[in-house]
Simulated scan of single mutants.
Amino acid sequence: MTYVLQLGLIGICIALLPLSYVWVKADDNKFRKLVWLTTFLTLDLVMFGGFTRLTDSGLGCPDWPGCYGTSSPFIAHAAITAAYQAMPTGPVSIGKAWIEMIHRYFAMAIGVLIIAQVLIAWTARFKRRPLHVSPWWPTGILMLIVVQGAFGAWTVTMKLQPVIVTTHLLLGLALLGSLGWLAARQTPIPAIDPAAARWLPAALIGLLLLVVQIALGGWVSTNYAVLACTDFPLCNGAWIPPMNFEHGFHLWRALGMTGDGDVISQDALVAIHWTHRTFAIVVVLYTLWLAAKLRRFESLRKPANGIMIVIVVQFLTGLSNILLQWPLPIAVAHNGGAAILLLLLVMVNFRISSSRPGHVVGPSATAPRDAVPASLPRQAP
């Protein structure tokens, strides 16, 4: 298992770069800087995960956590070459192996950064320094990334089974959303009109609808159903084309197969695509309505504007995927747009939550930087 230790060292070395940046940066709140940087890098990792999936690189190294029992495609070069020569159109090649391993290296680096957050948070708790968050929050995020890593392993060992890959995607976005919430708790927020509190249920519904739509989009991608409908607004020349929902949404099955072990039909793929496309209309209309309503509040105007812009971009990139036959840059941008929209809705929900009377969730924009929260006792002079 020497190569596992080598993989760990690679992850630590990569994580040292952002950790060094946080350490030398002129900011009196290193923890806040670290959380925001980890959130940004996790967004990048989610997008690179989409790139890995879209380039069919998920099995570029068909074992886990290394590549043919080594820590690097350099070392596994002979095994990769042999696999490629045996099946040139198969999932293994030098390029795909590097894409897959780079994704794993950066995932390990994110794990190291979250471990650093856990250590800082618990140290602050023991030394009674305020962080405006319980140390159990970063600890929970660390547990989430462990589960995410397990699904990453099963993605490979279970040969890209759609339900495993989709769950892996959703867990990655849950990790991103949790980090975004933690970052928001560490950031001073402007005064918010208490009247915004009544929009919390609507904002939560918007977030839930988006999560369902992302799950449907992940199901489209993992089943390679993006081009099941090649026209718009019709689907293969019909508003309601022939579809097979039973096979399309049977969860536990191998890639490209039905639950009975037969090759999945085109009608099943059309059902997957059509459902994602149709539900997108609901999400777009509801989210645009919600953003328009939230723009009336000064403290919510910027994220609401961001939501409206990203929704439009998502519609255009989704349409381009169909009409331009799924070009890779646009497909990656569509994945990234969903992640950014999730972050924006998380931020909106956080700000609305903070507007509830007597509900303190983070530092105030006007509070002194060294202020001790009411939940922590002040030490005697």
Rank of each mutant, 00 (worst) to 15 (best):
I240M: 13
A86D: 11
S320M: 01
K302D: 06
P357F: 06
G90A: 11
T317N: 09
G140S: 13
T275F: 06
R277V: 02
A121D: 03
G358F: 06
L294V: 03
D28N: 13
A78S: 15
I164V: 15
D27C: 03
I214D: 08
L234G: 02
L328R: 01
R198A: 15
V165T: 04
G149A: 11
W326S: 14
N223T: 11
G206A: 03
V163G: 05
V156F: 11
A116W: 05
A83V: 10
V312N: 02
F51K: 12
M308W: 05
F74L: 14
I12L: 15
R356M: 00
V35Q: 08
R185M: 14
V312I: 15
R104V: 00
M87Y: 07
I164E: 12
Y21M: 03
G69S: 05
I141S: 00
L131H: 13
W23A: 15
G337E: 12
A174W: 06
V348K: 03
M108E: 12
V22N: 04
V361S: 08
W239E: 05
A116M: 10
G172L: 02
A374K: 13
T366A: 12
T139C: 10
W274A: 07
A371M: 03
Q6C: 08
L9F: 10
M1I: 08
V211L: 15
P363Y: 01
V348G: 11
A15E: 13
A107Q: 03
Q148C: 05
F232D: 07
L144M: 05
L169Q: 08
Q314V: 00
N244I: 02
D370A: 09
P18H: 02
R32W: 07
H334G: 14
H250V: 02
T258G: 04
L341V: 04
S178T: 08
L341T: 09
V211H: 07
V310I: 15
A268F: 09
P18D: 04
R369V: 08
L341C: 06
L204M: 11
Q213S: 11
V24H: 13
L290M: 14
M108V: 03
F249R: 02
T89V: 05
R301T: 00
D193F: 04
H334P: 08
H334L: 14
R369N: 09
T155V: 01
W274Y: 08
T70S: 15
P88A: 08
R125F: 12
V22R: 09
F74N: 13
S354H: 02
N29P: 03
I330S: 10
K127A: 07
A121I: 01
V226Q: 15
M308H: 04
G60A: 11
P201N: 06
A150C: 04
L179Y: 01
W136H: 12
L210N: 03
T42S: 00
S265P: 00
K25Q: 14
K302Q: 09
I330K: 06
A280Q: 14
L142V: 11
